[in-house]
Design a protein around this nucleic acid. Structure first.
Lengths: 160, 160
DNA sequence: CGCTTGCTTGGAGCGCACTCGAAGGCCATA
DNA sequence: TATGGCCTTCGAGTGCGCTCCAAGCAAGCG
């Protein structure tokens, strides 16, 4: 009945990730997750406190034991973080997932809005790139003569 | 002797911007600059305090009078801000410009490093875009059956 | 047993980039 | 003259995303 792969219960194909243990033995300490993600243990616990993570399994002594699914979720969070999405919005998404199937529509909307944001940010960056390229051209080319800058200094050309 | 256009003393061709007054009459109050840039007056004064702006011309009563060049610089700052460059780095660049021609090399290096950062960020965002697209496909397609998510909830497929 | 290591908790603190408030100056219009 | 509006400065406050601390527990080792 299930469509699951070895390490993924995702909604779509997920590439196998190195260092992961197979389903059933996927139980990682917080320090292992630190090594995987680059986040600090503090941050991981904080994510949990604010509701950005589900409640993580615990060992018999109360220590956190992360699953492959948790790591997948952290991957997604990491990606969304790079887009500049506020943590509060990610928490909102996490809440929708926890709330069950009836939030599919809302999740879809949120993802689409995020997608639009990402596209806009890419466009902004490409715009900036063009500006940088023009400046770099200037500095590498005529840079040593008739030098001037938008933000003027003591050089030349003040009067116009 | 100068290469200047009507509104620009930049190191490279700058498109004419709407609302700008021609060279010689380019004297804008802070509230006009607020309208241009979307920044607050507080932020503009703060930029000046921290050295991100040159010392702005003053009217006989001591009020700030911004020039086209200042607006150009603010445009650049706005672009760099979008790349996530820390304000301290922009201040550094501003200091280099103020310091004179002998900092050309350093400015060039800084711009190139920034350019690399921007390219890397674009790549990251495109990566994220791919993930979002996969998820959006899932939610718009098979979404209503066999639903599951990396960050599992109460739905299905738990056992594997 | 004591020591170390790694984990737990709640809560306080930090750095960044603003953001705002208080108190006052200048000046145009009524 | 006075009222309103926009300007000034300095310094304190805000929101975000961590980041760290102190105190304590549990396991492993000599």
């Amino acid at each position: 009945m299930t469509v699951m792969e070895t390490t993924s219960t995702d909604s779509c194909a997920a590439p196998p990730r190195p260092g992961r243990r197979p389903q059933g033995q996927d139980s990682y300490t917080i320090s292992e997750v630190v090594a995987f993600t680059g986040l600090t243990a503090h941050t991981l616990r904080w994510y949990e406190r604010i509701g950005l993570m589900p409640h993580i399994d615990r060992s018999h002594t109360g220590q956190r034991r992360y699953s492959n699914r948790d790591l997948d979720w952290l991957d997604l969070v990491g990606k969304l973080r790079l887009t500049g999405m506020p943590v509060a919005d990610m928490v909102r998404y996490a809440e929708l997932v926890r709330a069950g199937d009836h939030t599919f529509g809302e999740r879809f909307d949120l993802l689409e809005a995020t997608r639009r944001d990402v596209l806009a940010r890419i466009a902004e960056l490409q715009d900036t790139l063009a500006v940088l390229d023009r400046k770099i051209d200037f500095y590498s080319g005529a840079g040593r003569r008739f030098e001037q800058e938008r933000y003027m200094d003591d050089t030349t050309e003040q009067a116009g």
